[in-house]
Simulated scan of single mutants.
Amino acid sequence: MDKVEEFLATLKSTILSTAPDSSLILSDRDGFVLGKLIDKNDSADKIIENSALSIFSTSTDQASKLYSGKNKAIVSYFEDRIVVHINVTNVILSIVTDTDSNVGVILGAQNDIVRSLNNLSNSIQIDLQDM
């Protein structure tokens, strides 16, 4: 298991333990998937297949123009799932969960998620410099 998948597994078991049936997708701003942890009962792969991940970066840039500061997250409610996109620098964490999940708890953990993503980003950059 590489660092990204290990990070996602740790994130799901600790910070996001209240949303056990969730899938996590880590991507860059262009929608390139860096790592994913897909729940076996979820159809989150469909989100990866279409352009939903790359559309988020455009949406968050537009939302940041509303003179309310930099957009940190966007929550989308669908008929059968909820998708929470959290924006950290040039990395986007997408959390796909069922409609029974408590989005407030996920968003409440946002600061911890951001700290963890910053640590992961730093460790990936160190590994790339060693190559």
Rank of each mutant, 00 (worst) to 15 (best):
S68N: 13
T10Y: 06
I15E: 07
K46V: 05
S13Q: 08
S76D: 13
I95W: 05
I25Q: 02
G35I: 11
K65Y: 14
I48T: 15
S116Y: 02
S64Y: 11
I86H: 01
K70L: 10
M1G: 07
A63G: 02
L34C: 15
I38N: 12
D30A: 08
D30R: 13
L26F: 04
S101A: 12
L8E: 03
K72L: 13
D28M: 01
F7Q: 06
S116I: 03
R81M: 08
F78R: 07
S54Y: 00
D2P: 15
S68E: 15
L34R: 12
S57N: 14
A44H: 09
A63P: 04
A52V: 10
N90P: 05
V75M: 09
I55H: 11
N87H: 11
Q125N: 14
G104F: 10
G108A: 02
V114N: 08
K40Q: 10
S68I: 14
V88Y: 09
S116R: 11
D45W: 13
G108L: 03
Q125L: 11
K46P: 02
D61S: 15
N71Q: 05
S116K: 05
E79L: 06
I124V: 08
S23L: 06
L66A: 11
V96I: 07
I15W: 01
F56G: 01
I48G: 03
Q129C: 11
I126K: 10
R81F: 05
G35C: 09
K70F: 04
S101E: 03
L93H: 01
V84R: 03
L117M: 15
I55Y: 06
T14S: 10
L93R: 00
I74M: 13
I124L: 15
G104H: 09
R115I: 14
S27I: 00
V96T: 06
T99I: 14
V84W: 12
A44E: 02
K46Q: 10
L128R: 15
Q129Y: 07
N102S: 12
A52C: 14
Q125F: 11
S51K: 12
I25A: 03
V103M: 08
Q110E: 07
R115L: 11
S116V: 01
I74R: 04
K3M: 07
S22A: 12
K36I: 11
L117H: 02
K12D: 01
L8K: 03
I25G: 04
V84A: 05
S64P: 03
L117P: 01
A19D: 07
I55R: 15
V88C: 14
K72P: 00
L93I: 00
A63T: 10
D2S: 10
Y67R: 13
L93E: 03
T18Y: 05
I95V: 08
K12P: 02
I82H: 02
S64T: 06
P20G: 05
T58E: 14
F56Q: 07
Y67F: 10
A44W: 03
T99E: 04
I113A: 01
L8G: 05
L8D: 10
I25L: 04
R29P: 04
I74D: 02
K72H: 06
I47S: 11
S23M: 02
H85F: 13
D130L: 12
K3P: 08
S22M: 09
K36S: 13
Q62S: 09
K40T: 12
P20T: 05
N50R: 14
D112L: 10
K65S: 09
K70P: 02
S94R: 00
V103H: 04
D30G: 14
